[in-house]
Write a protein that binds this DNA or RNA. Sequence first.
DNA 1: CTTTGGATCGTCT
DNA 2: GACGATCCAAAGG
Length: 220
Amino acid sequence: MTGPVRRRRVLPRRFYDGDALEVAPQLLNKILVRGRRSGRIVEVEAYRGAQDPASHAYRGQTRRNATMFGPPGRLYVYFTYGMHWCANAVCGPEGEAQAVLLRAVTPLSGLEEMRHSRWAGRGPGPVPADRQLTSGPARLCQAFAITGEDDGADLVRRDRGLAVVDDGTPPPRRVGVSGRVGISAASELPWRFFVPGEPHVSGVPGPRTGRPVLPAPGRR
DNA sequence: CTTTGGATCGTCT
DNA sequence: GACGATCCAAAGG
């Protein structure tokens, strides 16, 4: 009943050393790992530095975005909306400030730790469905306990237990493509990539509003 | 099921 | 002083 035991290998530096538009779809079905926690990457977005009005790096280097200007293969973690962390894999040659935003993973292991990181300390009431665990850039950071402390972590060296690994599962034959979520500039560019049909993909373009919409909890 | 508004603060102008 | 690469609860139909 169990699938084949596949060797997991940490993605090498060269994997990240390319244009974000090429690296982003290649990250689909790779595995984000931190300690016991792991999840298959099912949704990402490419951000292309000076080429990209929606990128934090568009207007040049600052203290906040410095990691993006560094070497590929590191984690760029930023703080937004006064309460959320989001994580990117830095790619492209050093200095170009390209990055791939990790928007959703399907949990594979360490589910208890993830649930604890997400929902410990909440009051009485129903425990949210596991669908809400890691479907969204800030949700997955919370589930993996990724914060500003992890900004700059080298994913190739497994800094702080963080890495992206390949278990031999290729990206989907047909990659889902859409506009990027939650931005105002250049939102029409088709630089969001996802695994079609994966329940943990965070949002689809809403039919009414055009804004991302999660399937209702309980539906599949 | 859809839509709205609140939370909350670092960063850049 | 304005605004986020967001999430959630609550209200509305």
